[in-house]
Simulated scan of single mutants.
Amino acid sequence: MFVNVLRFRFKEGVSDEEQAEVLAAMRRTASLESSAFGVVGADLGDPAEGFTHAYLSAIPDLEAFRRYTWDPVHLAGDELILDKIETMRAVRFSDDDPAISQAMYAEVAAKQERYPEWSRRVAELFGE
């Protein structure tokens, strides 16, 4: 099992309607067949950290992660989401063989190569 937790906040000026649209897109991604379970909602952490919302998706295995990464619903959600979020941080972990991370990050590298603009925008969100 691979778990991806994203904490984020919206950009100033993003309307309530736009926020609802982003959260709906995230819920669609978190509920893909390749995800064992997902949760999207208010971040209940320390407000001083600056995050208002969180996303969680649990992916059962590497093959499911590949389907999740390339799913058209996920790709379309990325396009909608990235322009509305100011900052994001991730916590990722797995209860499987630690070597699985190499294969998963190789899949992410392939996505970065195929979608360089997506890669640049994600790097900006993570402050890289």
Rank of each mutant, 00 (worst) to 15 (best):
S15Q: 05
H74F: 08
F37W: 15
S35M: 09
V39W: 13
S15I: 08
F51W: 12
A20P: 06
Q112C: 11
V14M: 06
P60V: 11
E12H: 00
R27C: 06
E113D: 09
E18P: 05
G77A: 14
G77E: 06
A54N: 07
S35Y: 08
W118S: 00
Y55L: 03
V40R: 02
D78K: 06
V108W: 12
E12A: 10
A103V: 11
E49V: 04
N4L: 13
R89Q: 05
Y68C: 09
I81Y: 05
E79N: 07
L75V: 11
E79S: 07
L56F: 10
Y55F: 14
L23K: 04
A48W: 15
P72F: 13
F93I: 08
D46F: 08
A110Q: 09
E86V: 09
A58I: 14
Y105R: 02
P60R: 09
Y105P: 07
G50C: 12
A123P: 08
I81N: 01
R92A: 15
W118V: 07
Y68V: 09
V91Y: 06
V22N: 03
T87D: 03
R9P: 02
F8I: 02
D97I: 10
E117M: 09
L56C: 05
D71P: 10
A24G: 05
M88K: 00
A24C: 04
V91M: 09
A24S: 15
A64V: 10
K111R: 12
E107G: 03
S31A: 14
A36M: 04
R89E: 12
R120Q: 11
L82S: 03
Y68M: 05
N4A: 12
A109V: 02
I100L: 12
L44I: 08
D71E: 08
E21H: 13
A109P: 01
S57I: 05
L6I: 12
E79Q: 10
Q102P: 00
E17D: 06
L44T: 12
A25T: 13
G127N: 11
D95Y: 07
E21R: 15
E107K: 00
S35R: 06
K84G: 06
E33P: 01
E128G: 12
G50K: 09
R114Q: 04
M104A: 15
R7D: 05
E117Y: 00
A36K: 13
E12L: 04
F8N: 01
Q19E: 14
V40N: 07
M88Y: 02
F126Y: 01
Y55P: 01
R66A: 05
T87L: 07
M1Y: 09
E21F: 15
D95E: 15
V108P: 02
A99W: 15
G77T: 14
M88I: 04
S15V: 11
L75Y: 02
G127Q: 05
E17N: 00
K111P: 03
A58G: 05
D71K: 03
F93G: 09
